[in-house]
Nucleic acid binder design. Sequence first.
DNA 1: ACGAGATCCTGTCAGC
DNA 2: TGCTGACAGGATCTCG
Length: 299
Amino acid sequence: MERWKSPFPTLDPPFAAMPELPEVETIVRTLAPQVQGRRISAVTVLHPKVVQSGEALLPLLRGATITGIRRRAKLLVLTVRPEAGSAAGQDLLLAFHLKMTGSFFVHPADALPLKHTRLIFDLEGDGRLFFDDTRTFGYCRLMQPGELERWPFWASLGPEPLDCPPETLAAHFTGAFAKRRISIKAALLDQRLVAGIGNIYADESLFRAGIRPDAPASSVTQGKLLVLAKAVQAILRQSIEECGSSIRDYRDALGNAGAFQNAFAVYGRKGETCAVCGAALQACRIAGRGTVYCPRCQQ
DNA sequence: ACGAGATCCTGTCAGC
DNA sequence: TGCTGACAGGATCTCG
Protein backbone atom coordinates (compact mmCIF):
# COMPACT_ATOMS: atom_id res chain seq x y z
CA MET A 1 0.00 0.00 0.00
CA GLU A 2 1.28 3.45 -0.85
CA ARG A 3 2.22 5.54 2.11
CA TRP A 4 0.32 8.79 2.58
CA LYS A 5 2.69 11.71 2.08
CA SER A 6 2.15 14.74 4.24
CA PRO A 7 1.86 18.03 2.31
CA PHE A 8 2.63 19.95 5.49
CA PRO A 9 6.00 21.34 6.54
CA THR A 10 7.82 19.84 9.47
CA LEU A 11 6.98 21.27 12.88
CA ASP A 12 9.78 21.88 15.31
CA PRO A 13 9.32 21.35 19.02
CA PRO A 14 8.29 22.55 21.46
CA PHE A 15 4.66 21.64 21.48
CA ALA A 16 2.67 19.44 23.82
CA ALA A 17 1.27 15.94 23.39
CA MET A 18 -0.22 13.13 25.25
CA PRO A 19 -0.38 9.44 24.63
CA GLU A 20 -3.55 8.67 22.72
CA LEU A 21 -4.33 5.43 20.91
CA PRO A 22 -1.40 5.47 18.43
CA GLU A 23 1.13 6.43 21.08
CA VAL A 24 -0.01 3.76 23.54
CA GLU A 25 -0.03 1.23 20.70
CA THR A 26 3.55 2.20 19.84
CA ILE A 27 4.61 1.94 23.48
CA VAL A 28 3.07 -1.54 23.71
CA ARG A 29 4.89 -2.66 20.56
CA THR A 30 8.26 -1.32 21.66
CA LEU A 31 7.91 -2.48 25.25
CA ALA A 32 6.75 -6.01 24.45
CA PRO A 33 10.11 -7.45 23.33
CA GLN A 34 11.80 -5.87 26.33
CA VAL A 35 9.52 -7.20 29.07
CA GLN A 36 7.58 -10.17 27.69
CA GLY A 37 8.45 -13.35 29.57
CA ARG A 38 10.64 -11.59 32.12
CA ARG A 39 10.45 -12.06 35.86
CA ILE A 40 9.90 -9.17 38.25
CA SER A 41 12.34 -9.32 41.17
CA ALA A 42 11.18 -6.19 42.99
CA VAL A 43 8.67 -3.33 42.77
CA THR A 44 9.32 0.19 44.07
CA VAL A 45 6.49 2.69 44.44
CA LEU A 46 7.84 6.24 44.40
CA HIS A 47 4.65 8.29 44.39
CA PRO A 48 1.65 7.79 46.66
CA LYS A 49 -0.90 8.31 43.90
CA VAL A 50 0.56 6.09 41.20
CA VAL A 51 -1.00 2.83 42.38
CA GLN A 52 -4.68 3.73 42.30
CA SER A 53 -6.04 0.37 43.42
CA GLY A 54 -4.87 -3.09 44.40
CA GLU A 55 -1.95 -1.98 46.54
CA ALA A 56 -2.51 -5.02 48.76
CA LEU A 57 -1.61 -7.24 45.79
CA LEU A 58 1.79 -5.59 45.26
CA PRO A 59 3.76 -8.24 47.21
CA LEU A 60 2.48 -10.89 44.78
CA LEU A 61 4.41 -9.23 41.95
CA ARG A 62 7.76 -10.26 43.39
CA GLY A 63 8.86 -13.29 41.41
CA ALA A 64 5.97 -12.97 38.97
CA THR A 65 6.47 -13.26 35.22
CA ILE A 66 5.16 -10.73 32.69
CA THR A 67 3.22 -12.93 30.28
CA GLY A 68 1.31 -10.39 28.23
CA ILE A 69 1.12 -6.75 27.20
CA ARG A 70 -1.72 -5.17 25.25
CA ARG A 71 -3.64 -1.97 24.64
CA ARG A 72 -7.32 -1.15 25.04
CA ALA A 73 -8.37 2.45 24.37
CA LYS A 74 -5.56 4.54 25.89
CA LEU A 75 -4.82 1.92 28.54
CA LEU A 76 -1.77 -0.33 28.59
CA VAL A 77 -2.46 -3.67 30.27
CA LEU A 78 0.21 -6.04 31.56
CA THR A 79 -0.68 -9.62 32.41
CA VAL A 80 1.47 -11.03 35.18
CA ARG A 81 1.74 -14.64 36.37
CA PRO A 82 2.66 -14.95 40.06
CA GLU A 83 5.23 -17.49 41.17
CA ALA A 84 3.96 -21.05 41.45
CA GLY A 85 2.72 -21.68 44.96
CA SER A 86 2.16 -18.01 45.72
CA ALA A 87 -1.01 -16.80 47.39
CA ALA A 88 -2.41 -15.40 44.16
CA GLY A 89 -3.09 -18.63 42.30
CA GLN A 90 -4.13 -16.81 39.16
CA ASP A 91 -2.83 -14.17 36.79
CA LEU A 92 -2.89 -10.54 37.82
CA LEU A 93 -3.51 -7.53 35.61
CA LEU A 94 -1.81 -4.15 35.71
CA ALA A 95 -3.76 -1.49 33.86
CA PHE A 96 -1.84 1.75 33.24
CA HIS A 97 -3.29 5.05 32.12
CA LEU A 98 -0.53 7.36 30.91
CA LYS A 99 -2.77 10.43 30.75
CA MET A 100 -0.68 13.29 29.32
CA THR A 101 2.88 12.63 30.36
CA GLY A 102 3.25 8.99 31.36
CA SER A 103 6.06 6.96 29.77
CA PHE A 104 7.90 3.67 30.08
CA PHE A 105 11.57 2.93 29.65
CA VAL A 106 13.78 -0.03 30.49
CA HIS A 107 16.98 1.22 32.13
CA PRO A 108 20.08 -0.73 33.18
CA ALA A 109 19.88 -2.59 36.49
CA ASP A 110 21.90 0.05 38.34
CA ALA A 111 19.85 3.04 37.14
CA LEU A 112 18.58 5.40 39.83
CA PRO A 113 15.09 6.96 39.77
CA LEU A 114 14.71 10.13 37.73
CA LYS A 115 12.97 13.26 38.93
CA HIS A 116 9.56 12.06 37.79
CA THR A 117 9.92 8.30 38.15
CA ARG A 118 6.79 6.99 39.89
CA LEU A 119 7.16 3.23 39.74
CA ILE A 120 10.04 0.82 39.13
CA PHE A 121 9.91 -2.89 38.30
CA ASP A 122 13.26 -4.60 38.69
CA LEU A 123 13.59 -7.31 36.06
CA GLU A 124 15.54 -10.45 36.74
CA GLY A 125 18.76 -10.69 34.81
CA ASP A 126 19.25 -7.06 33.92
CA GLY A 127 17.05 -4.03 33.68
CA ARG A 128 14.64 -1.79 35.52
CA LEU A 129 11.33 -0.87 33.99
CA PHE A 130 10.52 2.75 34.93
CA PHE A 131 7.11 4.35 34.81
CA ASP A 132 7.73 8.09 34.66
CA ASP A 133 5.05 10.76 34.75
CA THR A 134 5.74 14.48 35.11
CA ARG A 135 2.25 15.61 35.96
CA THR A 136 1.29 12.62 38.07
CA PHE A 137 -2.11 12.25 36.42
CA GLY A 138 -1.16 8.78 35.24
CA TYR A 139 -1.82 5.73 37.36
CA CYS A 140 -1.90 1.97 37.43
CA ARG A 141 -4.51 -0.38 38.85
CA LEU A 142 -3.44 -3.79 40.04
CA MET A 143 -6.29 -6.25 39.66
CA GLN A 144 -7.37 -9.84 39.61
CA PRO A 145 -8.81 -10.79 36.20
CA GLY A 146 -12.51 -10.46 37.08
CA GLU A 147 -11.91 -7.03 38.54
CA LEU A 148 -10.94 -5.54 35.22
CA GLU A 149 -14.35 -6.16 33.70
CA ARG A 150 -16.02 -4.77 36.81
CA TRP A 151 -13.98 -1.58 36.71
CA PRO A 152 -16.58 1.01 35.65
CA PHE A 153 -14.23 2.93 33.36
CA TRP A 154 -13.18 -0.25 31.55
CA ALA A 155 -16.75 -1.48 31.30
CA SER A 156 -17.95 1.82 29.87
CA LEU A 157 -15.35 2.04 27.08
CA GLY A 158 -16.73 2.36 23.57
CA PRO A 159 -15.53 0.27 20.62
CA GLU A 160 -11.99 0.28 19.29
CA PRO A 161 -12.09 2.48 16.18
CA LEU A 162 -9.64 0.29 14.23
CA ASP A 163 -11.28 -3.06 14.93
CA CYS A 164 -14.03 -2.82 12.35
CA PRO A 165 -14.63 -1.66 8.77
CA PRO A 166 -15.35 2.06 8.35
CA GLU A 167 -18.99 1.34 7.49
CA THR A 168 -19.43 -0.40 10.85
CA LEU A 169 -17.75 2.44 12.70
CA ALA A 170 -19.92 4.95 10.85
CA ALA A 171 -23.05 3.00 11.76
CA HIS A 172 -21.91 3.02 15.37
CA PHE A 173 -21.39 6.79 15.20
CA THR A 174 -24.88 7.21 13.81
CA GLY A 175 -26.39 5.36 16.74
CA ALA A 176 -24.13 6.78 19.42
CA PHE A 177 -24.32 10.42 18.29
CA ALA A 178 -28.06 10.54 17.67
CA LYS A 179 -30.00 12.72 20.10
CA ARG A 180 -26.74 14.06 21.55
CA ARG A 181 -26.61 17.80 21.94
CA ILE A 182 -22.87 17.79 22.50
CA SER A 183 -20.52 18.91 19.74
CA ILE A 184 -19.08 16.34 17.36
CA LYS A 185 -15.64 16.95 18.87
CA ALA A 186 -16.91 16.33 22.41
CA ALA A 187 -18.48 13.12 21.11
CA LEU A 188 -15.17 11.91 19.63
CA LEU A 189 -13.42 12.65 22.92
CA ASP A 190 -16.01 10.74 24.97
CA GLN A 191 -14.37 7.36 25.64
CA ARG A 192 -17.79 5.80 26.21
CA LEU A 193 -18.78 6.55 22.61
CA VAL A 194 -15.53 5.58 20.90
CA ALA A 195 -12.28 4.56 22.60
CA GLY A 196 -8.78 5.95 22.25
CA ILE A 197 -9.30 9.32 20.58
CA GLY A 198 -7.86 12.38 22.33
CA ASN A 199 -7.53 16.03 21.48
CA ILE A 200 -4.96 15.71 18.71
CA TYR A 201 -6.70 13.00 16.72
CA ALA A 202 -10.13 14.55 17.22
CA ASP A 203 -8.96 17.82 15.65
CA GLU A 204 -7.04 16.10 12.86
CA SER A 205 -9.89 13.72 12.01
CA LEU A 206 -12.47 16.50 11.88
CA PHE A 207 -10.22 18.54 9.61
CA ARG A 208 -9.67 15.64 7.25
CA ALA A 209 -13.41 14.93 7.22
CA GLY A 210 -14.27 18.58 6.64
CA ILE A 211 -16.53 18.84 9.67
CA ARG A 212 -16.70 21.82 12.00
CA PRO A 213 -15.68 20.70 15.50
CA ASP A 214 -18.52 22.66 17.11
CA ALA A 215 -21.24 21.10 14.98
CA PRO A 216 -23.80 19.30 17.15
CA ALA A 217 -23.04 15.58 16.99
CA SER A 218 -26.63 14.77 16.08
CA SER A 219 -26.57 17.22 13.17
CA VAL A 220 -23.82 15.43 11.22
CA THR A 221 -25.33 13.48 8.34
CA GLN A 222 -24.81 9.75 7.83
CA GLY A 223 -22.74 10.47 4.75
CA LYS A 224 -20.49 12.79 6.70
CA LEU A 225 -20.17 10.25 9.53
CA LEU A 226 -18.85 7.71 7.04
CA VAL A 227 -16.31 10.26 5.85
CA LEU A 228 -15.42 10.88 9.50
CA ALA A 229 -15.07 7.17 10.27
CA LYS A 230 -12.69 6.78 7.33
CA ALA A 231 -10.72 9.86 8.41
CA VAL A 232 -10.42 8.62 12.01
CA GLN A 233 -9.14 5.24 10.84
CA ALA A 234 -6.76 6.63 8.24
CA ILE A 235 -5.23 9.11 10.69
CA LEU A 236 -4.88 6.63 13.54
CA ARG A 237 -3.31 4.05 11.19
CA GLN A 238 -0.95 6.58 9.68
CA SER A 239 0.11 7.76 13.13
CA ILE A 240 0.72 4.19 14.33
CA GLU A 241 2.81 3.63 11.21
CA GLU A 242 4.85 6.71 12.13
CA CYS A 243 5.16 5.60 15.77
CA GLY A 244 2.82 8.28 17.08
CA SER A 245 3.16 12.00 17.59
CA SER A 246 6.04 13.34 19.61
CA ILE A 247 5.56 16.42 21.57
CA ARG A 248 8.04 17.26 24.23
CA ASP A 249 7.13 14.49 26.70
CA TYR A 250 6.22 11.58 24.51
CA ARG A 251 8.71 8.85 23.74
CA ASP A 252 8.09 5.20 23.00
CA ALA A 253 9.58 2.53 25.24
CA LEU A 254 12.84 2.63 23.29
CA GLY A 255 13.18 6.38 23.81
CA ASN A 256 12.30 7.17 20.21
CA ALA A 257 10.20 10.12 19.16
CA GLY A 258 7.34 9.51 16.71
CA ALA A 259 6.93 11.42 13.48
CA PHE A 260 3.22 12.03 13.07
CA GLN A 261 3.47 15.54 14.53
CA ASN A 262 5.03 16.51 11.21
CA ALA A 263 1.73 15.65 9.54
CA PHE A 264 -0.46 17.78 11.79
CA ALA A 265 -2.82 19.80 9.61
CA VAL A 266 -4.40 21.82 12.40
CA TYR A 267 -3.30 20.74 15.89
CA GLY A 268 -0.93 23.33 17.33
CA ARG A 269 -1.15 25.43 14.16
CA LYS A 270 -3.42 28.25 15.34
CA GLY A 271 -2.98 31.32 13.15
CA GLU A 272 -1.05 29.46 10.46
CA THR A 273 -2.50 29.10 6.99
CA CYS A 274 -4.47 26.04 6.01
CA ALA A 275 -2.31 23.92 3.69
CA VAL A 276 -5.37 23.04 1.63
CA CYS A 277 -7.12 26.40 1.12
CA GLY A 278 -4.82 29.03 2.58
CA ALA A 279 -7.29 30.40 5.12
CA ALA A 280 -6.03 31.30 8.58
CA LEU A 281 -6.57 28.43 11.01
CA GLN A 282 -8.77 29.45 13.91
CA ALA A 283 -8.65 28.42 17.56
CA CYS A 284 -11.44 28.09 20.09
CA ARG A 285 -12.34 26.02 23.13
CA ILE A 286 -14.64 23.04 22.78
CA ALA A 287 -15.38 20.65 25.61
CA GLY A 288 -12.73 22.50 27.61
CA ARG A 289 -10.03 21.63 25.08
CA GLY A 290 -7.95 23.81 22.84
CA THR A 291 -9.34 23.33 19.34
CA VAL A 292 -7.92 24.38 15.98
CA TYR A 293 -9.81 24.19 12.71
CA CYS A 294 -10.02 25.64 9.23
CA PRO A 295 -13.08 27.89 8.96
CA ARG A 296 -13.22 27.36 5.20
CA CYS A 297 -12.52 23.61 4.83
CA GLN A 298 -14.64 22.57 7.79
CA GLN A 299 -18.32 23.38 7.31
C1' DA B 1 -30.67 12.79 32.19
C1' DC B 2 -27.65 15.49 30.21
C1' DG B 3 -24.11 18.86 29.58
C1' DA B 4 -20.93 22.41 31.13
C1' DG B 5 -17.29 23.69 34.01
C1' DA B 6 -13.94 22.97 37.79
C1' DT B 7 -10.45 19.94 39.35
C1' DC B 8 -6.06 17.41 39.69
C1' DC B 9 -0.54 18.51 38.45
C1' DT B 10 3.93 20.36 36.71
C1' DG B 11 6.54 22.63 33.28
C1' DT B 12 6.72 26.18 29.85
C1' DC B 13 6.20 30.54 28.06
C1' DA B 14 4.32 35.32 27.30
C1' DG B 15 4.06 39.64 29.36
C1' DC B 16 5.24 43.14 32.55
C1' DT C 1 16.11 39.68 35.16
C1' DG C 2 12.62 37.71 37.71
C1' DC C 3 8.10 37.20 38.85
C1' DT C 4 3.17 36.13 37.82
C1' DG C 5 -0.41 34.12 35.52
C1' DA C 6 -2.19 31.59 31.64
C1' DC C 7 -2.06 27.38 29.43
C1' DA C 8 -1.59 22.42 28.30
C1' DG C 9 -5.12 18.18 28.93
C1' DG C 10 -8.07 12.87 30.39
C1' DA C 11 -11.19 11.53 33.27
C1' DT C 12 -13.96 12.51 37.31
C1' DC C 13 -16.65 15.19 40.15
C1' DT C 14 -20.09 18.74 41.12
C1' DC C 15 -23.62 21.68 39.88
C1' DG C 16 -27.45 23.62 37.20
